[in-house]
Amino acid sequence: MTVAVVQFGGSNCDRDSVRALSHLGVDAERVWHEDGLPAETTGIVLPGGFSYGDYLRAGAMAARSPIMDEVRAAAEEGTPVLGVCNGAQIGCESGLVPGAFTTNRSARFQCERVHVRVENADTPWTDAYDAGDVLELPIAHGEGRFEIAAENYDRLEREDRILLRYCDADGDVTDAANPNGSTGNVAGVLGDRESVAVMMPHPERATLPDLDGTDGQGVLRGFRR
C-alpha cells in the first residue's frame, strides 16, 4: 500500500504530505511527475505549491502533464485521490472535480487559520468526523475562491458533493467567515466518486501533534481505508 504524492516542478507541499501521512502510518512516497505512477499505487495526493510557477492559471500547466492521464484513470478505477491547495486547482483544471479556484476576494495571498464545517461525513475523507463538526485548518493561498456555474453548484448540493464549507468557530456559515469569497463558502468538494476530493485548506499542516492543531488528521486517514 503506497500513496503517491505527485511532485510537479514547483510543488512545495510534497515533503510535508509524506511526513504527515507517515505519521499516520500511511506508507507514502514522492513521485516525480515525469516518472509516472508506480505500479503499486494505492492512493494519490496532488500536493500544494506553485506548479510551473502558476505562470499560467494556477494548476493549468500541471493538469495537462502526462501523469494526469494516469491519475484520472486511477481515479476512475476507484483509487483515492486528494488534491490540496494547488492540487485542488490542478484537480479542477484537469476535470477531476467541477468548478474553478480563482483570485481571492482580497486579491492578496492569505496564510491563516480558518474554520470549516464538515458537510458530508459519509466519505473516506470525513469518515472520522460527524456532519456539522467544525475543524480548524490552515489555509495558504492567493487563488482559493471557488467559482462554479449556478446549475453545477445546484447539482453539487443535490448530490451532496460539497465536503467542507468555511464557517465561524460556532459552525455558522457566514460571509464574514468566508476568507476568499468562495461561492457557497465552499472549501472542499468531491468528484464524481466520493474517493476523489479537493480542498483549499491544508490537512497535512494540521496533522503532526508537535505543531499547533491536529484537526486535519481525519482527512488524511481517508488513505487508510
Binding site: R108, F109, D210
Partner: peptide
C-alpha cells in the same frame, strides 16, 4: 504583512 507570507509550509512552524 505576515498573513501574505506562507509561514507554515514545511510543517515545522511550531510558533507562528
Amino acid at each position: 504583512v505576515y498573513r501574505q507570507y506562507d509561514h507554515e509550509v514545511g510543517v515545522r512552524t511550531a510558533l507562528r
